[in-house]
Amino acid sequence: MKCRVCRQRAVIQVKRHHANFCKDHFIEHIHRQVAKTIDEYKMFDAADRLLLGVSGGKDSLALWNILNELGYAVDGVYLHLGIGDYSSESLNLSTNFAEARGLKLQVSDLPAEFGFSVPEAAAASRRAPCSACGLSKRYILNQIADELSYDVLVMGHNLDDEAATLFSNVLRWNAEYLARQRPVLPATNEGFARKVKPLIRVAERETAAYAVLQGIDYEVDECPMAAGNTINRYKEWLNRLEEDSPGVKAGFLFGFLERGVEHFPNADRPTLDSCRFCGQPTTSDVCAFCRLQAVTLRA
C-alpha cells in the first residue's frame, strides 16, 4: 500500500477518501481537514480567545496539537470527574501534554469544588453515569468560559461522535436535540458560550492514528463508567456499515447538516431564566446541574 501523495509506504488507509497516506502526508491531510472545517463554518479566527475541553483522551489532545500547529493560541481546561484512577491518570496525561508544549491547562475538580463525583451523582440521581457526567461537563465548561471571558468553547467531538449522536437522536426523533446538533452553536445573551466542533470531518480512527503518529501519550483505557453506553454501541454498528460502504458515516452526518438540520429550527427555544442558585441560564427555576448537586449531596 502506497501513499497517495509521495508513493512511499502507507501507514493508514482512509477508505472514504479513497486514499492511503504515509505518516507525514496523513498529518498534513488531517491539518487540512480541520482548517477547512474551521473556515467553512466560520468557527473562530486568530483574534478569538479559545478554550478547549481536555479529557486526556485522543480526540481532545489531538485537537489541541492540531490547533497549536495551525497557529491558534488555545488554552485547555481539564475537568476532574472523580472517577478513581481513570481520572487521575487522564489528568496526568493532560498535564504532561500541556507542559511539554508550554500550553496553559486549567483544572476544575468536581469533587473538590462541587462536593460530588460522577459515580456518586449517577447513583444518587439514578441517571446513567454518562448522562450525569455530560450534564456536569457542559455546565462547568460553560461556567469557566463565561467567568474567564473566553470567546469560544472548543470541543473535541469527532465524526463518529456526531454520527452516533445523530443516529441516537433520529431513532427517537428528538427534535430539540436535532435542532442543536450543529458544528457551531452561537453564544446566547443569557450566557451560553459559543461552542464549536472542529473535528467533525475526522473519524475516530483517524484522531487515534494522528495521536499515535504524533507520539501523543493519551488515555487508551476506557472510562470504567462507559460500560453499556449506548452511543458506543451505535458507533460499533455504524462502523460495521462503514466497513461495507465506506463514507456512510460522513454521508449521514453531512447530509443532515446540509439538508436536514434546517428543518429543525432553534427558534421555538423557550426563553431562559437564571438559575436561582448559580445564575446560569436554565428553563426552570433551578438549573439541572444544581438539582443534580442537591440530590447527590442529600444522598
Binding site: 502507507a10 488507509q13 463518529d160 484522531t207 499515535v212 452511543i231
Partner: peptide, 22 residues
C-alpha cells in the same frame, strides 16, 4: 500498520480500540 501488511508467527500486534467516550 495497514490491513495489507504481512505478518508472521513471531509478530506482536496490538489492536487498539478507537471507540471511546460517552
Amino acid at each position: 500498520c495497514t490491513i495489507e501488511d504481512a505478518v508472521d508467527d513471531e509478530d506482536v500486534i496490538e489492536l487498539r480500540p478507537v471507540i471511546s467516550g460517552g
